[in-house]
Structures are given as C-alpha cells and as structure tokens.
Amino acid sequence: MAELIVGAKNSNLDEVLQFLDTELEKMGCSMKIQSQIDVAAEEIFVNISQYAYDHDNGLVIVQIEDEGEEIMITFKDNGTPFNPLRHDDPDIKKKAEEREIGGLGIFMVKKMMNDVKYEYKDGSNILSFKKMVK
C-alpha cells in the first residue's frame, strides 16, 4: 500500500494525481483505467479541499492498494462529517437548458468505479472506491 498525505487544497491536485499515476504505472495499469481513476480521484479530492475544513490546515490522506484484480483507493480527512454519496444523481435525461451545472462529479465516480463507499469512523471521513484492472 502506498500513501500520500497532503494539505486539503485545490492547488495540491496535481500532486495527488501524479502520486496515483506513478503507482498505477508501477502496477501496469492501462492509460484508460489511469485516466478514469484520475477523474474519480480529482472529484473526491476537490470535494474534500472545498468543503471538509473551515480552516486552511486540514489534511487529506490518499491511499492506493493493489488487490490483484482490483485497485482500491481511499481518501481520509478529519473534517466535518459529510457523505458525498447521499446526494441524488443528476437527471442525465433532461434537456440541456434544464440540466444543472453541478452534481456531475460524484455521479461520474459512481459510474466509473466499483464499490464506492463512505463511512465516518473515529473522527474521519473515509471514502473509498475500487477499480477492476485485470
């Protein structure tokens, strides 16, 4: 398992994606899967950096684990308890004029990844997802 601890700031997004891409390359993951994992990771990380903390010193722990046929990625923060998965999915059948601008991010994570889970445990928000790679 590899782990990165970074400040919960949008400006650290590149560092998070580079960390994940490096690990995914080591695991021999295809560009397509890497790109999908990056999209999902970006949504989760940006969500945390924007909403989890009411101060600038909050941290995010990013973990990536090779489980053989699957890769599991976990984000932890000690911010306000918040389950991003509880929001309704956007109605993607609506006409453009009626479509909301927001709400796409978490929907994309749910669609692209498997086993997307949230729990609040011992003062931490823990969001994890898996992706089949083999």
Partner: peptide
C-alpha cells in the same frame, strides 16, 4: 484533448446552454 474532469464538463455544458 487528453483528459477532462467534471470541472471541464461544466464548462462545456455552460457553453451549450
């Protein structure tokens, strides 16, 4: 275009609207 996240898709949707 190598990569687009939901932030980019929001820009596209706004343009369409």
């Amino acid at each position: 275009l190598k990569y687009i996240s939901s932030a980019g898709l929001r820009v596209v949707l706004k343009l369409r609207k």
